[in-house]
Amino acid sequence: MKTDHEDASGLTLQELSTETGVEPRTIRSYVEKGVIPGPESLGRGARYPRETLDRLKVLQLLRDANRDLTLDQIRVLMQRIGASQMAAIANGTLRIGALIDTDAIGASQPSKTAALDYLRSIRGTPVGQSWKASVQSPSRDTDHLPALEKAARALATLVGQPASSRSARGETWYRIALTRDIELSVRGEFDTEQLAQLHRISDSLRTLLTKGTST
């Protein structure tokens, strides 16, 4: 249903702000970070499509549902939710909770091998083989994706949208403390050798900054 101030060409920034309670400046920052699309036209009277209002509402609901989600994570999640689901969540007919599954807790304690089975499933270590021999990152098996993400993927499948690659999960920053007050932040994905080189550079910087007094 359209509101009084909304016309066929969409909503202004101020109207979006009034509808959602999100400050115009914050909405602009969401656009800059790619969480919501920009206006369809430029200039003072620029108008945003109706779907932008839904996206803003869903963004707020996602933030309320999980306070640990970063904007990058929210952006990736929202890319996987179709327009109809977005509208349903925004107008309250589909609860954000319905997107997030929880594990029912049984009446009795799990078996004593349950933890080991779980670790083997996420670390890919064959039964009977020492984990030490095959240290690796947790698998990307969808069985162990965060519930929210799993639900979003399921929704995307329902509406025929392919799930985007998990490698597109935003930028990565490496932060290395040089001294108590100075930190080195480097953006990018690095392999082991590059990381080691980065740490050697950090060590040199630390020595320079502390004149060798740092431990």
Partner: peptide, 27 residues
């Protein structure tokens, strides 16, 4: 640990997921 994890799995949400599953299984 003194650090910010910068290799392997680093997402707090994913780390929490594993921690929760292990807690339910007794660790």
């Amino acid at each position: 640990s003194d650090g910010h994890a910068n290799a392997g799995e680093t997402r707090p949400q994913m780390l929490a997921r594993h921690a929760s599953e292990l807690r339910k299984r007794g660790i």
